[in-house]
Amino acid sequence: MLILGLDPGLRHTGWGLIESEGTRIRHRGHGVLHVDAAQPLSDRLAALYAGLKEVVESLAPDEAAVEETFVNRNPVSTLKLGQARGVVLLVPALAGLPVAEYPPNLVKKTVVGTGHAAKEQILTMVKVLLPGCGVTVGDAADALAVAICHAQHRRHAALAGVAP
């Protein structure tokens, strides 16, 4: 099972692909889509769509998992992030993939063991769980963490006889 994890952002959207087989997970790729912040919002969303569509088509994942948006202090920033997240949800859905969503605290708790882990802790644990992955960028590490979270919760749901 190939799982594409996605960490939405309007300027930087991380993606990470893992293979999940039983309790084993393997790194298959990762990266970050960068969108020019100087462009109008509509152009940025279009660029995000095109870049993510290319990622989904080239990697051919079986499922996708997306980190949910947390509300920050700036409502305008939260709204714009929500629009980017909508694109991130749309692309794999249009490709016919099941798309799961996970809150940031659950992703952190699943990967690090605490729901309030720092980005550095996530990066470190992703490197431990996916030896040799070579991830150095926080957005890509976060996306791999989302994929790992999905693999773990998907497996537990299957054992319980419940859809993830």
Results as ranks from 00 to 15, higher is better:
T78G: 12
D139M: 10
G51I: 06
I122W: 05
N74T: 01
T114E: 11
H116L: 13
N105M: 15
V137P: 00
S58W: 09
P75V: 06
R44K: 08
V111G: 12
E67D: 05
V56C: 02
A46S: 13
L94G: 02
G86Q: 04
V87K: 03
T78N: 07
R44Y: 11
P40C: 03
L97C: 00
I122H: 03
L106Y: 05
P98L: 13
Y49F: 14
T136E: 10
T110N: 07
G86C: 08
G132P: 10
D43C: 00
A65H: 01
E101S: 14
G82Y: 04
L97W: 09
A46K: 14
E101G: 11
A100W: 10
I122S: 00
G51A: 08
P75K: 05
L130K: 10
P75I: 03
I122K: 00
V87E: 01
A118S: 13
P92H: 13
N72Y: 12
E120P: 02
L130H: 04
V56T: 07
L94F: 13
P61A: 01
L89R: 02
E68V: 10
V91F: 06
A100V: 10
K53L: 15
G86N: 06
L129F: 04
P104G: 02
A50P: 00
Q83S: 01
L106F: 01
L130A: 10
K53G: 15
G82A: 03
P104R: 01
S77Y: 02
V87T: 04
R85P: 08
L97Q: 02
P98C: 09
Q83M: 14
L79P: 10
L48W: 01
R44I: 03
K108I: 05
A65Q: 03
M125F: 08
P98R: 15
L79T: 11
V111H: 11
V111E: 15
P131I: 13
T124F: 15
L79Q: 13
L94R: 14
G138Y: 14
K109S: 15
N74K: 07
G96N: 10
N74D: 12
L123K: 06
P98D: 09
V88L: 07
T110G: 02
K119N: 07
E63P: 00
L97T: 02
L106A: 14
G113T: 03
T110Q: 04
V71Q: 07
L81W: 07
L41K: 09
P131M: 13
L89H: 00
P92Y: 12
S58T: 15
A47F: 01
A50L: 12
G115N: 08
L52I: 04
V55R: 00
A93R: 09
D43V: 07
G86E: 06
A100N: 10
H116Q: 15
L41M: 13
T114G: 03
K108Q: 05
I122V: 15
L97D: 01
G113D: 10
D62T: 08
Y49G: 07
K53A: 15
E54C: 11
N74A: 03
T136A: 15
T78M: 08
G96I: 05
N74E: 09
E57L: 12
T110A: 10
E63D: 09
